[in-house]
Design a protein around this nucleic acid. Structure first.
Lengths: 145, 145
DNA sequence: ATAATTGCAAACAATTTGCATTCAG
DNA sequence: CTGAATGCAAATTGTTTGCAATTAT
Protein backbone atom coordinates (compact mmCIF):
# COMPACT_ATOMS: atom_id res chain seq x y z
CA UNK A 1 0.00 0.00 0.00
CA UNK A 2 2.72 2.46 0.79
CA UNK A 3 6.03 0.94 -0.33
CA UNK A 4 7.42 4.22 -1.68
CA UNK A 5 6.59 5.96 1.59
CA UNK A 6 8.13 3.18 3.60
CA UNK A 7 11.29 3.46 1.53
CA UNK A 8 11.36 7.21 1.91
CA UNK A 9 10.91 6.94 5.63
CA UNK A 10 13.63 4.30 5.95
CA UNK A 11 16.05 6.46 3.99
CA UNK A 12 15.28 9.66 5.87
CA UNK A 13 15.66 7.93 9.21
CA UNK A 14 18.91 6.32 8.18
CA UNK A 15 20.40 9.65 7.15
CA UNK A 16 19.84 10.85 10.69
CA UNK A 17 21.15 7.81 12.47
CA UNK A 18 17.65 6.67 13.34
CA UNK A 19 16.09 3.30 12.76
CA UNK A 20 13.16 1.98 10.85
CA UNK A 21 10.95 -0.04 13.14
CA UNK A 22 7.70 -1.95 12.74
CA UNK A 23 5.98 0.58 15.00
CA UNK A 24 6.98 3.52 12.80
CA UNK A 25 5.88 1.67 9.71
CA UNK A 26 2.53 0.82 11.27
CA UNK A 27 1.88 4.35 12.49
CA UNK A 28 2.62 5.81 9.08
CA UNK A 29 0.36 3.23 7.43
CA UNK A 30 -2.41 3.94 9.92
CA UNK A 31 -2.26 7.69 9.30
CA UNK A 32 -2.59 7.11 5.57
CA UNK A 33 -5.37 4.57 5.85
CA UNK A 34 -7.46 6.47 8.34
CA UNK A 35 -7.07 9.79 6.54
CA UNK A 36 -7.90 11.89 9.61
CA UNK A 37 -7.44 10.33 12.96
CA UNK A 38 -6.60 11.20 16.50
CA UNK A 39 -3.63 9.60 18.25
CA UNK A 40 -6.09 7.41 20.13
CA UNK A 41 -7.72 6.17 16.92
CA UNK A 42 -4.35 5.58 15.34
CA UNK A 43 -3.37 3.55 18.36
CA UNK A 44 -6.48 1.37 18.07
CA UNK A 45 -5.76 0.76 14.42
CA UNK A 46 -2.11 -0.10 14.97
CA UNK A 47 -3.07 -2.49 17.75
CA UNK A 48 -5.14 -4.57 15.37
CA UNK A 49 -1.81 -5.66 13.91
CA UNK A 50 0.52 -5.26 16.88
CA UNK A 51 -1.50 -5.42 20.03
CA UNK A 52 1.20 -4.38 22.45
CA UNK A 53 2.10 -1.01 20.95
CA UNK A 54 1.88 1.67 23.59
CA UNK A 55 0.14 4.99 23.10
CA UNK A 56 3.33 6.75 24.14
CA UNK A 57 5.00 5.32 21.08
CA UNK A 58 2.17 6.61 18.94
CA UNK A 59 2.70 10.13 20.25
CA UNK A 60 6.45 9.94 19.84
CA UNK A 61 6.18 8.54 16.36
CA UNK A 62 3.64 11.11 15.22
CA UNK A 63 5.90 13.87 16.44
CA UNK A 64 8.80 12.32 14.58
CA UNK A 65 6.86 11.82 11.35
CA UNK A 66 5.70 15.39 11.55
CA UNK A 67 9.25 16.66 11.98
CA UNK A 68 10.22 14.65 8.94
CA UNK A 69 7.40 16.23 6.97
CA UNK A 70 5.48 13.01 6.36
CA UNK A 71 2.39 13.81 8.37
CA UNK A 72 0.66 16.92 9.65
CA UNK A 73 -1.91 17.63 12.29
CA UNK A 74 -4.87 19.95 12.58
CA UNK A 75 -6.85 21.11 15.56
CA UNK A 76 -10.51 20.83 14.84
CA UNK A 77 -11.61 22.82 17.85
CA UNK A 78 -12.04 20.80 20.99
CA UNK A 79 -10.07 17.77 22.10
CA UNK A 80 -7.43 15.77 20.32
CA UNK A 81 -5.80 16.84 17.07
CA UNK A 82 -6.26 14.94 13.82
CA UNK A 83 -3.37 13.61 11.83
CA UNK A 84 -3.19 13.06 8.12
CA UNK A 85 -0.58 12.32 5.51
CA UNK A 86 1.27 15.34 4.28
CA UNK A 87 0.25 15.03 0.61
CA UNK A 88 -3.37 14.88 1.59
CA UNK A 89 -3.82 18.65 1.75
CA UNK A 90 -7.19 20.14 2.39
CA UNK A 91 -9.05 22.64 4.49
CA UNK A 92 -11.35 21.35 7.20
CA UNK A 93 -14.75 22.86 7.78
CA UNK A 94 -16.20 21.88 11.12
CA UNK A 95 -19.88 22.26 11.85
CA UNK A 96 -20.21 23.33 15.42
CA UNK A 97 -23.77 22.13 15.59
CA UNK A 98 -23.33 18.50 14.54
CA UNK A 99 -19.55 18.18 14.59
CA UNK A 100 -19.33 17.00 11.01
CA UNK A 101 -16.01 17.63 9.29
CA UNK A 102 -16.08 18.57 5.62
CA UNK A 103 -12.91 18.65 3.53
CA UNK A 104 -12.51 21.16 0.79
CA UNK A 105 -9.60 21.89 -1.52
CA UNK A 106 -7.09 24.45 -0.32
CA UNK A 107 -7.58 26.42 -3.49
CA UNK A 108 -10.82 27.78 -2.06
CA UNK A 109 -8.62 29.85 0.21
CA UNK A 110 -6.34 31.21 -2.48
CA UNK A 111 -8.13 34.54 -2.51
CA UNK A 112 -7.93 34.93 1.24
CA UNK A 113 -4.31 33.83 1.26
CA UNK A 114 -3.39 36.52 -1.26
CA UNK A 115 -5.31 39.12 0.71
CA UNK A 116 -3.65 38.30 4.02
CA UNK A 117 -0.26 38.30 2.40
CA UNK A 118 -0.67 41.68 0.74
CA UNK A 119 -2.38 43.35 3.70
CA UNK A 120 -0.37 41.88 6.55
CA UNK A 121 2.52 39.89 5.17
CA UNK A 122 0.94 36.83 6.73
CA UNK A 123 1.57 33.60 4.85
CA UNK A 124 -1.48 31.46 5.35
CA UNK A 125 -1.05 27.72 5.76
CA UNK A 126 -4.47 26.66 4.63
CA UNK A 127 -4.20 22.99 5.41
CA UNK A 128 -3.33 23.31 9.07
CA UNK A 129 -6.44 25.11 10.06
CA UNK A 130 -10.06 24.38 10.46
CA UNK A 131 -12.89 26.79 9.84
CA UNK A 132 -16.00 26.55 11.87
CA UNK A 133 -19.56 27.36 11.08
CA UNK A 134 -22.89 25.71 10.40
CA UNK A 135 -23.17 23.05 7.72
CA UNK A 136 -25.91 22.96 5.12
CA UNK A 137 -27.92 20.30 6.95
CA UNK A 138 -27.87 22.05 10.30
CA UNK A 139 -28.59 25.38 8.65
CA UNK A 140 -31.67 23.86 6.99
CA UNK A 141 -32.89 22.37 10.25
CA UNK A 142 -32.51 25.73 11.89
CA UNK A 143 -34.80 27.36 9.36
CA UNK A 144 -37.58 24.83 9.85
CA UNK A 145 -38.03 25.75 13.48
CA UNK B 1 -16.93 49.85 33.36
CA UNK B 2 -19.66 47.49 32.31
CA UNK B 3 -22.88 48.58 34.00
CA UNK B 4 -25.02 48.05 30.90
CA UNK B 5 -23.63 44.52 30.54
CA UNK B 6 -24.26 43.77 34.17
CA UNK B 7 -27.85 44.95 33.79
CA UNK B 8 -28.31 42.89 30.67
CA UNK B 9 -26.91 39.84 32.38
CA UNK B 10 -29.10 40.31 35.43
CA UNK B 11 -32.19 40.64 33.28
CA UNK B 12 -31.40 37.66 31.08
CA UNK B 13 -30.70 35.48 34.08
CA UNK B 14 -33.88 36.57 35.81
CA UNK B 15 -35.99 35.72 32.78
CA UNK B 16 -34.75 32.16 33.06
CA UNK B 17 -35.16 31.78 36.77
CA UNK B 18 -31.45 32.09 37.34
CA UNK B 19 -29.64 34.41 39.71
CA UNK B 20 -27.15 37.15 39.43
CA UNK B 21 -24.18 36.43 41.65
CA UNK B 22 -20.91 38.19 42.41
CA UNK B 23 -19.04 35.33 40.72
CA UNK B 24 -20.93 35.76 37.47
CA UNK B 25 -20.39 39.48 37.56
CA UNK B 26 -16.68 39.07 38.20
CA UNK B 27 -16.21 36.51 35.45
CA UNK B 28 -17.96 38.70 32.92
CA UNK B 29 -15.87 41.68 33.97
CA UNK B 30 -12.69 39.64 33.75
CA UNK B 31 -13.47 38.44 30.24
CA UNK B 32 -14.02 42.02 29.11
CA UNK B 33 -10.95 43.39 30.82
CA UNK B 34 -8.57 40.70 29.72
CA UNK B 35 -9.83 40.68 26.13
CA UNK B 36 -8.53 37.17 25.34
CA UNK B 37 -7.93 34.91 28.24
CA UNK B 38 -7.97 31.26 29.15
CA UNK B 39 -10.18 29.98 31.98
CA UNK B 40 -7.06 29.75 34.13
CA UNK B 41 -6.14 33.38 33.51
CA UNK B 42 -9.69 34.49 34.13
CA UNK B 43 -9.61 32.59 37.40
CA UNK B 44 -6.41 34.36 38.49
CA UNK B 45 -7.93 37.71 37.67
CA UNK B 46 -11.19 37.02 39.49
CA UNK B 47 -9.26 35.82 42.53
CA UNK B 48 -7.60 39.18 42.90
CA UNK B 49 -11.01 40.41 44.01
CA UNK B 50 -12.58 37.27 45.43
CA UNK B 51 -9.84 34.91 46.42
CA UNK B 52 -11.97 31.87 47.11
CA UNK B 53 -13.64 31.50 43.74
CA UNK B 54 -13.15 28.01 42.44
CA UNK B 55 -12.01 27.22 38.91
CA UNK B 56 -15.04 24.97 38.51
CA UNK B 57 -17.22 28.03 38.88
CA UNK B 58 -15.19 29.78 36.21
CA UNK B 59 -15.83 26.93 33.79
CA UNK B 60 -19.50 26.77 34.62
CA UNK B 61 -19.93 30.51 34.35
CA UNK B 62 -18.10 30.75 31.04
CA UNK B 63 -20.33 28.04 29.64
CA UNK B 64 -23.38 29.91 30.88
CA UNK B 65 -22.25 33.28 29.53
CA UNK B 66 -21.56 31.66 26.22
CA UNK B 67 -25.02 30.11 26.09
CA UNK B 68 -26.44 33.53 26.82
CA UNK B 69 -24.44 35.00 23.96
CA UNK B 70 -22.33 37.32 26.11
CA UNK B 71 -18.96 35.71 25.54
CA UNK B 72 -17.40 33.44 22.94
CA UNK B 73 -14.36 31.23 22.84
CA UNK B 74 -11.78 30.46 20.22
CA UNK B 75 -9.31 27.62 19.91
CA UNK B 76 -5.91 28.92 18.96
CA UNK B 77 -4.46 25.52 18.26
CA UNK B 78 -2.99 23.77 21.25
CA UNK B 79 -4.11 23.98 24.86
CA UNK B 80 -6.82 25.98 26.48
CA UNK B 81 -9.35 28.07 24.57
CA UNK B 82 -9.45 31.85 24.80
CA UNK B 83 -12.55 33.72 25.83
CA UNK B 84 -13.59 37.17 24.80
CA UNK B 85 -16.63 39.38 24.94
CA UNK B 86 -19.13 38.73 22.21
CA UNK B 87 -19.03 42.22 20.69
CA UNK B 88 -15.29 42.01 20.35
CA UNK B 89 -15.43 40.06 17.07
CA UNK B 90 -12.29 39.36 15.14
CA UNK B 91 -10.39 36.66 13.35
CA UNK B 92 -7.27 35.31 14.96
CA UNK B 93 -4.17 34.65 12.93
CA UNK B 94 -1.67 32.46 14.75
CA UNK B 95 1.93 32.28 13.67
CA UNK B 96 3.07 28.73 14.11
CA UNK B 97 6.69 29.78 14.22
CA UNK B 98 6.58 32.33 17.05
CA UNK B 99 3.10 31.77 18.42
CA UNK B 100 2.08 35.39 18.04
CA UNK B 101 -1.64 36.00 17.72
CA UNK B 102 -2.77 38.75 15.38
CA UNK B 103 -6.33 40.01 15.35
CA UNK B 104 -7.92 41.14 12.15
CA UNK B 105 -11.44 42.29 11.37
CA UNK B 106 -13.91 39.60 10.37
CA UNK B 107 -14.70 41.50 7.21
CA UNK B 108 -11.47 40.20 5.72
CA UNK B 109 -13.26 36.86 5.48
CA UNK B 110 -16.41 38.18 3.85
CA UNK B 111 -15.34 36.97 0.44
CA UNK B 112 -14.53 33.51 1.68
CA UNK B 113 -17.75 33.36 3.66
CA UNK B 114 -19.80 34.15 0.58
CA UNK B 115 -17.90 31.56 -1.42
CA UNK B 116 -18.39 28.78 1.12
CA UNK B 117 -22.04 29.63 1.43
CA UNK B 118 -22.73 29.55 -2.29
CA UNK B 119 -20.59 26.50 -3.02
CA UNK B 120 -21.42 24.36 -0.01
CA UNK B 121 -24.19 26.00 1.96
CA UNK B 122 -21.70 26.35 4.80
CA UNK B 123 -22.24 29.37 7.01
CA UNK B 124 -18.83 30.44 8.19
CA UNK B 125 -18.36 31.70 11.74
CA UNK B 126 -15.16 33.58 11.25
CA UNK B 127 -14.49 34.45 14.84
CA UNK B 128 -14.51 30.99 16.37
CA UNK B 129 -11.37 29.47 14.94
CA UNK B 130 -7.92 30.66 14.20
CA UNK B 131 -6.04 30.70 10.94
CA UNK B 132 -2.48 29.56 11.04
CA UNK B 133 0.52 30.50 9.02
CA UNK B 134 3.74 32.45 9.23
CA UNK B 135 3.69 36.07 10.35
CA UNK B 136 5.56 38.86 8.60
CA UNK B 137 8.44 38.89 11.08
CA UNK B 138 9.05 35.16 10.96
CA UNK B 139 8.71 35.17 7.19
CA UNK B 140 11.38 37.87 6.97
CA UNK B 141 13.74 35.97 9.27
CA UNK B 142 13.28 32.92 7.12
CA UNK B 143 14.45 34.78 4.04
CA UNK B 144 17.62 36.05 5.64
CA UNK B 145 18.94 32.53 6.22
C1' DA C 1 29.04 -2.92 23.20
C1' DT C 2 26.57 1.07 22.52
C1' DA C 3 23.09 3.87 21.07
C1' DA C 4 18.36 4.02 19.63
C1' DT C 5 13.75 2.64 20.66
C1' DT C 6 10.16 0.97 23.24
C1' DG C 7 6.90 0.05 27.17
C1' DC C 8 5.33 1.09 31.51
C1' DA C 9 4.10 3.84 35.31
C1' DA C 10 3.69 8.14 37.01
C1' DA C 11 3.20 13.10 36.35
C1' DC C 12 0.65 16.75 34.18
C1' DA C 13 -2.76 19.92 32.18
C1' DA C 14 -7.39 20.94 31.09
C1' DT C 15 -11.89 19.89 32.06
C1' DT C 16 -15.98 17.56 34.01
C1' DT C 17 -18.78 15.30 37.48
C1' DG C 18 -21.06 14.16 41.91
C1' DC C 19 -22.35 15.72 45.99
C1' DA C 20 -22.86 18.23 50.25
C1' DT C 21 -23.18 23.02 51.70
C1' DT C 22 -24.62 27.67 51.23
C1' DC C 23 -27.58 31.21 49.87
C1' DA C 24 -31.32 34.13 47.81
C1' DG C 25 -36.21 34.64 46.94
C1' DC D 1 -38.49 26.26 52.69
C1' DT D 2 -36.98 25.25 48.08
C1' DG D 3 -34.33 25.50 44.19
C1' DA D 4 -30.21 27.66 42.43
C1' DA D 5 -25.33 28.25 42.79
C1' DT D 6 -20.94 27.32 44.74
C1' DG D 7 -16.85 24.78 46.45
C1' DC D 8 -14.39 20.74 46.96
C1' DA D 9 -12.67 16.31 45.84
C1' DA D 10 -12.42 12.88 42.66
C1' DA D 11 -12.78 11.22 37.97
C1' DT D 12 -11.68 11.87 32.95
C1' DT D 13 -9.18 12.94 28.85
C1' DG D 14 -5.20 14.02 26.32
C1' DT D 15 -0.35 14.28 26.59
C1' DT D 16 4.44 14.18 28.44
C1' DT D 17 8.34 12.49 31.15
C1' DG D 18 11.68 9.43 33.48
C1' DC D 19 13.59 5.29 33.43
C1' DA D 20 14.58 0.51 32.92
C1' DA D 21 14.36 -3.24 29.53
C1' DT D 22 14.90 -4.41 24.69
C1' DT D 23 16.79 -4.39 20.20
C1' DA D 24 19.44 -3.33 15.98
C1' DT D 25 23.91 -2.44 14.21
Amino acid sequence: MSPPQAARLRRTLHERGMRMTPQRQLVLDAVRELAHATPEQICQHVRRTASTVNITTIYRTLELLERLGLVRHTHLGHGAPFYSADEHEHVHLVCHRCGQVIEVPCTLLDGLGALLDSELGFQLDASHLALSGICRDCGAEEEQK
